[in-house]
Every structure is written in C-alpha cells, then in structure tokens.
C-alpha cells in the first residue's frame, strides 16, 4: 500500500521516524510551515526555517526514500505579532515560488483575533493570485465557529473550494466542511483530536470522497505512523482497499498536486524524472542508496 502523509512536521522528527515511515509504506510527505513551539523573534528565523523546508529537510527525507514537499505560510499564532507578521508576509512571495512548495499553509485561526484574520486574508489573496492550494488550520478552541468563519472568508474572497484543505476536523465539523465542497482533513493524534478508531467510523459513515487523513506529527506527543496504522485499521474493519487508497493516497495527491510539484512519477520513476541527479554519476546520493558515513 502506497501512502502519503499530507501534513507532518518532519523537521521535528528523527531519522528513526523516517525509516519507520518508509517501511510502513509512506512514499511522500507534505510539511506545512509551522511555529516552533515558541514564538520567533525576528524575520531571519522565518527565512531560515522556510529555507530548511525546501533545503535540508527535503534532502534528509530523500536519504530515507521519502519525497518531501512543503507549504509556506505564516501560522495563526505568530500572526499576532503584527510588525513581524508584515515582514514575514513580505518574504513569502519568493519562498512560495520555490521548487517543492505545493501550497500556502498552514494558515487560519488560533484565537480568532483581528490580526489573525488580516494575515489569513493576505495569504488567501496570495494563494488565489498564484493559483496555489491552501491548507487551513482550524482552531483548537471554538473549532466549529472558527471553521465556519474560515470558510466564510474563503467564500467571500472567491476561492475555489477544491483548492482548499480544511484541516484538523472532528465529527463536529465534518458535515459542514463536506457540504461546502472543501477537502476535509483529519489529524490523528494519539490521545487528542481524532483517534484511529474514530477515524474509521468517520470513513464508514461519510465515505472516502474528499476525506484526507494526516498525522500532523511534530515536536509534541504525536505519531508519525498514524496514517499507515489507520489505513491498516480501516482494512481490518472491512473498509474497501479502494476507499483506503482514496483517503490515504489519491485524495492528498489530488488536493496538493495542483502546481505539478508533487507528482506520482517522483516516487514511481524516481531516477527517470530528474536529469540533474545524473550529474557527476555515482557521486550523487539517492534515497535508495546507502548512506555515506563521514568520518
């Protein structure tokens, strides 16, 4: 079974995780820009973390046979530092254009402040103008209200629903999100939000259309194998393989493959796709080759 984890903060994970993810069938990951657990104090910190998402982290994933893509954006929490937020919004255009960037995200609401709404709107406009998908983080507190408010703003700004993943849904929000035509993402945390069993029940009830699951694994208590574990549980519970493939592979690819950066050929025909990897012949490391130990 080939799987995609369309929302995971790999930079916070270990190489053991990458090995386990590859062994469990994960072929590609998408890492949204995120906060660091504490607020950043200057725009240089954003530049470096954005650069790492398209640079070192991408390379690191490739060493374990996993294709890494990312989303660029200013997260809701840090949007509240308005002076810094302006500086970050100024550098976003050049980072959003880089190779490996598939969407703007994760953006949206945390406390639902005016500053958050301003940054959300600016970034929605950017994504709309550049024809990029958007990954929307729905708030932990007042989830339903924040989800509805996010969707209202997106609709008001004329964003095509099929270009948006509304993420971190629960049983409480799934119906309104599906009704309005958005991709409906579920985050499988070990103890909070959706558990694996609850997720199976959601797919049994609502089917596989426009449903996406992810781990959102980060530096907190989380499970980088949430997608493969849930996929296997769905099969055990009698959900058709076809539906599992749709939820865990085809939907994230359809939702985030829009600009052509994330393509199935990237992992199905890894060597044919990139002539540059032939540069200098055998000296170029690929994921499927052994690591070179230094020293």
């Amino acid at each position: 079974m080939r799987l995609i984890d369309p929302h995971i903060h790999c930079s916070a994970r270990t190489t053991d995780d990458y090995e386990a993810m590859a062994a469990a069938g994960i072929v590609a990951v998408v890492e949204p820009a995120f906060w660091s657990g504490q607020p950043r104090s200057n725009v240089g910190s954003f530049i470096d973390s954005f650069a790492s998402l398209v640079g070192w982290e991408r390379f690191r994933a490739s060493q374990f046979g996993i294709r890494h893509y990312c989303c660029m954006g200013l997260n809701a929490k840090e949007a509240n530092d308005e002076a810094l937020a302006d500086e970050v919004l100024d550098i976003l255009p050049r980072f959003a254009a880089k190779s490996g960037v598939v969407a703007i995200g994760e953006i949206g609401f945390d406390e639902q402040t005016p500053a958050e709404e301003r940054a959300f709107r600016v970034q929605i406009a950017m994504a709309r103008d550049w024809d990029m998908p958007i990954v929307v983080h729905s708030p932990h507190r007042d989830k339903l209200g924040g989800t509805l408010r996010s969707m209202d703003i997106l609709a008001e700004m004329g964003v095509d629903e099929t270009m948006v993943i509304m993420d971190h849904n629960t049983e409480q929000t799934v119906e309104v999100v599906l009704e309005r035509g958005y991709w409906c993402g579920f985050t499988l945390y070990p103890r909070t939000k959706m558990g694996n069993e609850r997720m199976v029940a959601v797919v049994q009830r609502y089917g596989s259309e426009r449903i996406i699951i992810n781990s959102s694994a980060d530096w907190g208590v989380s499970d980088p194998l949430a997608v493969p574990k849930t996929a296997r549980l769905m099969i055990e519970r009698g959900i058709a393989q076809e539906a599992v493939d749709t939820v865990c592979y085809r939907n994230p690819l359809a939702a985030l493959g829009h600009n052509g950066e994330m393509r199935e050929q990237d992992w199905l025909e890894p060597e044919a796709i990139d002539q540059r990897r032939l540069f200098a012949g055998s000296t170029v490391l690929r994921g499927q080759e052994p690591r070179v130990d230094e020293g």
Partner: peptide, 10 residues
C-alpha cells in the same frame, strides 16, 4: 543564497 533550496544553491 540566503534561503536557497538545494537546486538553487547548485
């Protein structure tokens, strides 16, 4: 260079 991804840096 500041913020270049690997292919840009190459």
């Amino acid at each position: 260079w500041a913020g270049a991804e690997n292919e840009e840096a190459v």
